[in-house]
Design a protein around this nucleic acid. Sequence first.
DNA 1: CCAAATGGTGACCAGGTGGTCATAGTGACG
DNA 2: CGTCACTATGACCACCTGGTCACCATTTGG
Lengths: 216, 216
Amino acid sequence: MPRPTWTNLPPARRERVLQAAMAEFGRHGYSGGSLNVIAREAGVAKGSLFQYFDDKSDFFAHVAEQASMRIYAVMQPYLDKSADESGQTFTERLGDLVEVWIDYMADHPLERGITAATTMELDPQVRTAVREPVHRLYVQGLRPLVQGGVDEGQLRSDTDVDALLAMLILLLPHLALAPFEAGLDSAVPLHATSARTRAAHARRLVDTLLTGKVTE
Amino acid sequence: MPRPTWTNLPPARRERVLQAAMAEFGRHGYSGGSLNVIAREAGVAKGSLFQYFDDKSDFFAHVAEQASMRIYAVMQPYLDKSADESGQTFTERLGDLVEVWIDYMADHPLERGITAATTMELDPQVRTAVREPVHRLYVQGLRPLVQGGVDEGQLRSDTDVDALLAMLILLLPHLALAPFEAGLDSAVPLHATSARTRAAHARRLVDTLLTGKVTE
DNA sequence: CCAAATGGTGACCAGGTGGTCATAGTGACG
DNA sequence: CGTCACTATGACCACCTGGTCACCATTTGG
């Protein structure tokens, strides 16, 4: 938790620190990110950072939380869309969600970086602390969408909602990052594709996830 | 690439260095892993490490490659099983593969750690260098399994094989790690489940991946 | 006008980093 | 015996780390 000093800060200064932190932690992760660099890049004394936060991990957690909330705010409208008001299939709505997510990541390299850093954090303590709230947020947002799909008859009534949710939460951020971060894709070339085709690839994966592969 | 000195080494010494490196890199990742610690833990002078490898990244790449080859060697028999000789459905065979993978990770914490470290490596250069060969290896192993499933009529003929492969390569290592590494699961409690139930959870996810969710 | 409170600063600390290199030990060969 | 190739070693290097703290500037309010 940030100290009161942080919340009392002029928003412009807060934003400068936040941006510098997202950039540095996004590039080098939690343990690799340097507070010296962040302070220098934000134009702030290192000592100030310790007036705002208890220590490095407190700082990182706050930065990660802010970023994920900003992203979630953009996704929310697409999570709330129901079938009858949009006239779209479930697959189309999920495809739209992914496409918006990817577009957001294209336009916001800082948020993309810190998302990658939290998604790939190795230390179990840091990872759990940072990802559990994010998971809760996305389960909360995605469950109504999926449950709605079942209730509206677009998804089979015997769908294992929790299992589908688990896979979506694994797959969606991965799809959003893979076009911009090398070495995340394997059999489908999500990376190094043009803006035009990357959405098509992502929708292809969403399609494949939702359609049956095994013969009945 | 390791230097000749490394390959000339007595296997016992090589193994000690390898184990220490897997443990350290597995706990702290590439950038966080300390060569001092590895040398001390292996009972070897730090200078020796630089007789064996050009630098840290060369060392890490070799350790990661060795570990992934050991794991692959254990998985291979389950990748090669075809339907007619085993009498199993595709879902059952994939479930077996996952279960063996999980069991292997349970018994081999060192290999598990280094797998986690390479899967979650943040630096794009290191990640690409380390994961691309692993991806190739697993595409090579999984494609015949999937293609065989299609040819035998167990998978629908219109299955997008590459898309399914991409999702398997994302999902399978995740399933193998999640029971032992905190903060990787979301809607399905893979972590903190007993040895009895974790396989059931994993099979549940495999089932859900292969069955159709969307109504036809 | 003083006093208290708040926030900013950067030199400083102990400790760790990847990497180097001069030195020494070892065994094979002539 | 000497010599040659190979390997092991750890003190040493320049540099960076998260974190501290004594000191200063500004503002508030009595």
